[in-house]
Design a protein around this nucleic acid. Sequence first.
DNA 1: TTGTATGCGTTATCAG
DNA 2: CTGATAACGCATACAA
Lengths: 333, 333
Amino acid sequence: MATIREVAARAGVAPITVSRVINGSGYTSEETRKRVEEAIRELEYVPNVLARGLRSRRTHTLGLLVTDVTNPFWTTVARGAEDEAMRAGYALFLCNTDEDVAKQQRYIHALLSRRVEGLIIAPASSEAGPLRPVARAGVPFVLVDRRVPDVAADLVLGDSVAGARLLAEHLLSQGHRRIGHLGGPVGLSTADEREQGYRQALSAAGVEIEPQWVQRGEYKQEAGYRLMQACLAQPPWPTAVLAANNALAVGALAALRERGLNVPRDMGLVCFDDVPQASQIDPFLTVAAQPAYEFGAVAVRLLFERLSDPKRPPQTVVLPPELIVRRSAGPLN
Amino acid sequence: MATIREVAARAGVAPITVSRVINGSGYTSEETRKRVEEAIRELEYVPNVLARGLRSRRTHTLGLLVTDVTNPFWTTVARGAEDEAMRAGYALFLCNTDEDVAKQQRYIHALLSRRVEGLIIAPASSEAGPLRPVARAGVPFVLVDRRVPDVAADLVLGDSVAGARLLAEHLLSQGHRRIGHLGGPVGLSTADEREQGYRQALSAAGVEIEPQWVQRGEYKQEAGYRLMQACLAQPPWPTAVLAANNALAVGALAALRERGLNVPRDMGLVCFDDVPQASQIDPFLTVAAQPAYEFGAVAVRLLFERLSDPKRPPQTVVLPPELIVRRSAGPLN
DNA sequence: TTGTATGCGTTATCAG
DNA sequence: CTGATAACGCATACAA
């Protein structure tokens, strides 16, 4: 691969002049710029971003940590972030932590060692500890989707309480009075808040909750399957359940099918986050859909704002969910 | 952020000794290693991979270009690649080209300029031209899912001809004799081969094909919607269609629903590639599923083999699809 | 087993 | 408007 010196030699200028042409910094005459650009083309010169980053401390690279790449919510977040980053000439490392703090830490280290200029993190846990290395390295970061107590950072959130309330109210409006909740990990802000919204709605309607109807686990299909079974371990059964995310709902559906229970005939089901392809195939699940693409795009914008003004106070952007009513929670018989 | 010199100073050794401890290269006494490791911990030292790569020409970074991050097939490929790369201590840039050659070229440039050691590419077009910069930069690459004529590179493929034949034969076995095909872009190997497999199966069964039943377009939902409409523009209609990928099938389903046609009652539908979440929610689509995770993992393995032996002749690995029969193509009435 | 000198490719800084 | 010089942080080559 050609270097900036070879380009300079061929164009008959100094390396720094080539640098100026590439970066559009400083002055260059029309004349020399033409010559340099031609030399670049002829040699198929590709600037070495490593060397550039080493000297200038600007790598034009961001990192994005999501907790599940196979979840359409997160891939859509990634698209939003990627588009926004690319628009600004930044590349984006997309990393999948799988809700696993150890994996998250390995990626954080990998990204810091690659000197990314900023990080967008969907935290795998609500502990502040794992984020400390990022803060101490002085690398700006934005949290998406989940809060972390005692961490001062920009934040892009959905409204979990309101969304869960919407879903629960929908079930109530369909006549359900025995409503269960399949929740996410205890301590994770979205999971805690979704349970809270669910409880608020039911309590406002004067509806009782059996303890076994409320289950918590990971945001994964297997957990949905398991929690649904636990929920139905013994009577009385709920007539409907609210799953705290789409993966939980998909797992719950498998458990219900296995027991020969039909949705919505035998059991109503609603959840947070859409499953777009599935909904195209069959508009079935009633969901509180979040503007995932915006999550990513807004997070990158916040990050850029912070990069250009490091002292600006942390901002929080809340993007409300939208209730999409489909067939999975029809009127209670 | 601390540098290797600060670590060395604190440990009372030379920088090169720290380097040796970090990389496990050369000899270091137990004693000094302990001291160095402690200094690293105390200073929260994070090695600068840019500097390391500049000097050693090893960045421990790969690039993966997929054509659609929101398609579960590609996210699963990405997971396979990522897991395999991480196991070897490599990070992976995951980039989404959106089936757009211009976008693909921008990412290729971004990745070359970051001096990735290798690339895994799902080519957005079957032209060799766009891949030339990679070859000329001397960066090894593996093609996944699609062939590119006149490019000597390692290759991970599904068996498109066989898969399409399986799907078509399934439709024939259900009694269908008027079978359409919604195909991918003309010239793209998977798209061409899937049409070929479809034609082989029908011709072997002595079944005729109306020209309007065979449509080709992008591997995207909108195309599926449009092609399905074109397919039904005028009688005679097919009684079933074979979509060349999952996105096309999802779009086709929307078009059918819009016309009030029920699948499988009024129209059979099968496609290449699964839609895992949707199939969990409702085991509906009959598909030729490909081992997507293996695509990614095998591609990374091939890349590593080539990195360690650049002169080895290009390999091609073919991973066969599996027919999963569900309800979307029941017996013809 | 450890250290010294040097250079990877680029840009910041200062000069002209 | 252009150039010379040095330095970014690390690892290679060679010495001790």
